[in-house]
Nucleic acid binder design. Structure first.
Length: 453
DNA sequence: GTAGGGTTAG
């Protein structure tokens, strides 16, 4: 188990734990730790525990993780802030944000890192309101946020469409010069503006950022694509490749430029394909999809196939979309079939619609909007018996729905409610759906929510 | 030697 090749002395056990952790070999971490435990607790210190807790977090192991927490207490490391912080992270990865909060409360002198771990936990557990609440509490407690805290707070702003809070963070970043040097934070700001409805400011920030990485480019490409600005998105993608050409030309040897190139990744191509899809550029989309695989060695994931199916469907190439779904090497999900079903509804293709609906039923059961699409196709084709049949079945299993007025009041409630509000989940889902629908119609959250109702 | 970070189909 222990590798002796690289040194004459056997490596310290903690170094081995750390290495296994880095290479994602959770089982090796746990096995080695068990061996250490058997030798006696004297061979274990706070560093060993830390690495094992991180391994449990990586793989979301509740039983092993809680055993580690027990050991932390038993061995008297309860006040070790590094361990406490990693326990916050562990519980939030397990979905037990209450326990994470509990660990946090026990820390006598909370620093910026443990505050940030808790905020991050609330964001990851889909409680962005609570995350921002803790973010404010932290400032009331006179702990200054750093670049990591602000990056995470910005993702809470995105989840809520909270442009004003995002702007406040931007001002804060501008006031503290050392913060504006952090590219991750700048990327988060660009992303926040793009997602919260101010694509022009996002673009200005992007343009003024001299040193960009692949995420800077990707955030902006995706931002334009989400706003239906296909030309800008594809233009940026071309500009990015152009910049690589210049970098290559400027430097003489491979070594001097290879690390400076911006290599598009799987997410970049999601943006590119989304843009093609919105603009109905079928051939361009296919070209980029091929290039992604052949030139950049990116293996397409379900979401890439989703983009391609969307692209084909929007252009009315339903049969080709269907063939792609059957041919692709990954298992299609209900969302993907629903893309096809929706397009069949618009184009009136009964056979493919029935097939798509059957697949959706198998994957996740009946849903009202799918039935409505089917019912409308039948009605449009004058197939009244079939339409009545679908409608009858819908009556038997009515899914909850709400009117736009109800959604308006839900939004009010959503804005004011605490994350622990019993209706929060429902409100969240309704609002999420609404925002998606509005986005599809070109609306951006955060900009003019008052005009909604 | 130790803790917290970003872009992803509809």
């Amino acid at each position: 188990m222990v590798n002796f090749q690289t040194s004459h002395r056997p490596p310290r056990p903690n170094q081995v734990l750390k290495r296994h952790l880095k290479s994602n070999s959770t089982t090796k971490v746990l096995l080695l730790f068990r061996n250490l435990l058997r030798k006696g607790i004297s061979s274990i210190d706070s560093f060993s525990l830390l690495f094992v807790i991180k391994a449990c977090t990586q793989k979301s192991l509740p039983i092993e993780g809680k055993q580690m927490h027990a050991l932390v207490v038993k061995l008297g490391f309860e006040t070790n802030i590094f361990l406490q912080t990693s326990l916050i992270d562990l519980y939030s990865a397990l979905g037990d944000i209450g326990d994470a909060h509990h660990v946090f409360d026990e820390i006598p002198t909370k620093n910026v890192v443990c505050w940030t771990a808790l905020i991050s936990g609330f964001v990851d557990n889909r409680k962005p309101n609570k995350a921002l609440q803790v973010f404010r509490q932290m400032q009331i407690g006179n702990v200054e946020p750093d670049q990591v805290t602000l990056t995470i707070a910005l993702s809470a702003c995105i989840d809520l469409g909270a442009l004003e809070m995002g702007e406040w963070i931007h001002t804060y970043v501008n006031r503290r010069k050392e913060l504006s040097k952090d590219l991750c934070l700048i990327n988060a700001l660009i992303n926040m503006y793009a997602k919260c409805g101010d694509i022009e400011i996002a673009r200005r920030l992007f343009d003024s950022t001299k040193k960009k990485d692949v995420t800077t480019w990707t955030s902006m490409i995706v931002g334009h694509a989400l706003h239906g600005q296909a030309e800008e998105a594809l233009g940026l993608f071309a500009a990015m490749k152009e910049e690589n050409k210049r970098t290559r030309a400027k430097k003489t040897s491979y070594d001097s430029w290879s690390g400076l190139l911006i290599v598009p990744n799987d997410v970049t191509f999601i943006g590119v394909l989304m843009a093609c899809s919105h603009a109905g550029m079928v051939e361009e989309g296919k070209k980029h999809f091929r290039s992604m695989i052949e030139d950049y060695g990116v293996k397409p994931r379900l979401s890439h196939f989703g983009c391609m199916v969307d692209l084909l469907c929007r252009s009315g190439l339903l049969q080709e979309a269907y063939d792609l779904i059957l041919d692709m090497p990954v298992q299609p999900n209900a969302v993907l079939w629903r893309t096809l079903l929706g397009a069949c509804g618009t184009r009136g293709n009964i056979d493919l619609a029935a097939e798509a609906r059957a697949q959706i039923l198998e994957l996740e059961g009946s849903r009202v909007d799918d039935n409505i699409i089917m019912s409308n196709i039948y009605a449009a084709k004058g197939m009244w018996d079939e339409k009545i049949d679908v409608r009858e079945k819908m009556k038997q299993r009515r899914a909850p729905g709400c009117s736009s007025i109800e959604i308006g009041s839900l939004i009010n409630e959503f804005v004011t409610a605490d994350d622990d509000h019993p209706l929060k989940r429902e409100i969240y889902e309704a609002l999420g759906y609404l925002i998606e629908t509005m986005k599809a119609h070109g609306y951006s959250p955060g900009k003019s929510s008052s005009s909604l109702y």
